[in-house]
Design a protein around this nucleic acid. Sequence first.
DNA 1: CCGGTTGGATGGCGTTACCATCCATCCGAG
DNA 2: CTCGGATGGATGGTAACGCCATCCAACCGG
Lengths: 208, 208
Amino acid sequence: MQISELSDRSGLTVQTIKFYIREGLLPKGSAVSATRSEYDERHLERLRLINALRDIGDLPVAAIQQIIASVDDPSVGLHELFGTTQYAIGPHVERPDDPHWRAAREDVDALVRELGWKVGGGAPARDLLAHSFVALRRLGFPITLTDLRPYVRAATEVAEHELRRVSDDAPRTRTVHSLLVSTVLYEQVLTALHRLAQEDASARRFGA
Amino acid sequence: MQISELSDRSGLTVQTIKFYIREGLLPKGSAVSATRSEYDERHLERLRLINALRDIGDLPVAAIQQIIASVDDPSVGLHELFGTTQYAIGPHVERPDDPHWRAAREDVDALVRELGWKVGGGAPARDLLAHSFVALRRLGFPITLTDLRPYVRAATEVAEHELRRVSDDAPRTRTVHSLLVSTVLYEQVLTALHRLAQEDASARRFGA
DNA sequence: CCGGTTGGATGGCGTTACCATCCATCCGAG
DNA sequence: CTCGGATGGATGGTAACGCCATCCAACCGG
């Protein structure tokens, strides 16, 4: 198909598609002549993935580019892709040379050790959590292990469920998409349900 | 204290503080002369709140401004503040006049009804969830109620715990901060733990 | 043959969250 | 009393981001 059809079917403008190609998110079509290239279903599929990661996952184009690079490299295993995704998602907070920060980060590391979780030391989620600890303490709401228990339980159960759902006997493309969907899109599902549940709980506690 | 001390103690530049005052996030100091104003601990506290909402919650300044306006209005009840916060957080997705979208939105509404949740019909989280449904279907990963069950359970338990933790016998300021902290900051805590738990599950399933 | 499409390149735009400057005023140490 | 430095208030600039608009030469297809 031509780029205009790709544009129609994906719902993205031709300009945007060109932009994604320039940024390395989408491979070029196969050149048929100097002014014509042929695109196929894989391009459409790829655009749908990009769109989902941007629209729902709210990922920056640069992060998607990194993820795509791993997706397209067949030597990258599933767990490695997982790491790439987590790292690309960020957030990449500065780690100030500050005692409060170091204490919070140490608390996070201790928690991970205690739970026996196999998590890379450079995982951005560690920093995100530590960052939250610092902010909570600065606001006078110090966080305790008791506070965290329900979160840990919820996170564990959901994550187990998600990883169980990733089929690894399908073609690589399918498996990889499945993994990305589990991590990026279902994170939003969890967030949305969390917010809805909060509103319900708030209504029952404070509602008129 | 003067603005320079406020700047030092909050870690924000004088320019940024001026900017927040202009945007209505921070009340002016009480004018002592034409070129001097006095700030107090409440200003500092407010800056810490703003900083947490931006840094951790990643909220746009405009959203914080709306939240602050509710916080400062004593006639706004806690549940109402909750609604304001949810609405300010967004995301405000367009709702295309599209059968897929309408079907997804109807699925969400049915789910909320079935769970008996008291949630406003205009809650952005409904749209966020519906949006996710659409994207998942477009990618060929249709979502089922079975998939959702663990998420609903996790969200419910965490939300219950959070709302239980909001003390409503403290001064309004404290209670209100507590509510905001529960909704905005603990959402990030949940997300971070979710990611860590996923990495652990991935390591055990796919790791070398 | 000619209107319309494409690849490829380049420049512009709208938003967001500030930062930098400037000016007139003012404070306060000496 | 004076002068360096801080302040309030206003205005303009900036950097990143994710596109969109335009242009050109080449090309296709009716």
